[in-house]
Simulated assay, not measured.
Amino acid sequence: MPISKKPQSLLRNSFNFPTFSSLPDEPRIEIDLKYYDSGPFGFKPSQHWCFVGEIVDSIGLVRGLLRVKDKDGQVVTIGLYTDDRGQALAPQIKIGHTVAVLYSEQHRFLDMTVGIRVGDISNIKIIPCSLEQLLKASDDVATLRKGQPRRCGSCGKEENASDNTHLRLCSRCRHTAYCGEDCQKKAWVAGHKADCKALVGVRWFTERNWRMFHDWFSF
């Protein structure tokens, strides 16, 4: 009997969500045709992509510098070259949170180190959960989309229309479902409080078509 293949989780997709070593180079002296297509008005992205990594340190007095660990475990620097030098993001920057950077490229800084330069505030977002939690949430969403029936996030009871068993979704993440208020309260204390933040973060990504480029995404 063939082994059923698990659906690929969106954030596990190595093209649209590459690790640092797979990002295109900047400046684009040689266009990376893996990420760009030529057109009548020059080059434009062929698909969308986004770098995700977990914050392991935050440094820099004049300009915000983040040290983040990607999906491969490589630690790289993200330099915040926004108009306010990253000040708007400061309250959200916490070790253990995940940072996402749209259309990121490998950039060579003045000290000759290579990292990611962020100049547009709309290209960066900080998600209040670990990278591991975010990836797990992405896996959970992919599994449900494959067609598995919903189960209560607390007691495990399966939704079944034939016996009038209807579950209600968490109003925040719109993913985890419950039999009722008692199960929802128990699950919140048992761990959904943390999982919910990750699922909310994943929802932004799953609501978009990463394979077709029509215009730039922004957070």
Rank of each mutant, 00 (worst) to 15 (best):
P128A: 09
A194K: 12
W49T: 02
V75T: 14
I124A: 08
D57C: 07
G119E: 15
K146N: 12
Q133P: 01
D195F: 06
I78K: 00
P18S: 01
M1G: 13
F43A: 07
N13M: 05
G64S: 13
Q106K: 15
Q8I: 10
T113L: 07
R117D: 15
S9Q: 06
R145M: 12
P91S: 13
C155E: 02
L110N: 15
W49N: 03
K94L: 08
V114Y: 08
L169N: 07
F41Y: 13
S218W: 12
L23V: 06
I93P: 00
E181H: 10
M112H: 14
E54D: 08
R12F: 10
P45E: 03
E158V: 15
L169R: 11
C155W: 04
T82R: 02
D215R: 12
D111P: 06
M112N: 15
G39V: 03
E159Y: 11
K71Q: 13
C196K: 11
N16P: 01
E30M: 09
R208M: 04
K197T: 10
Q184I: 06
G73Y: 08
I124N: 03
N160V: 04
R203F: 10
P27W: 15
C50F: 11
S4G: 09
G96C: 03
A190G: 12
D84E: 10
I78C: 01
Q74C: 14
H107R: 13
K193N: 09
L11M: 12
L89Y: 10
Y81C: 04
S38R: 06
D182N: 12
I55G: 03
G39K: 00
A137N: 09
S122A: 11
C196H: 07
K44I: 07
I78E: 00
G153T: 06
P27A: 12
S22I: 06
S46C: 08
S46V: 06
C129I: 00
N160C: 11
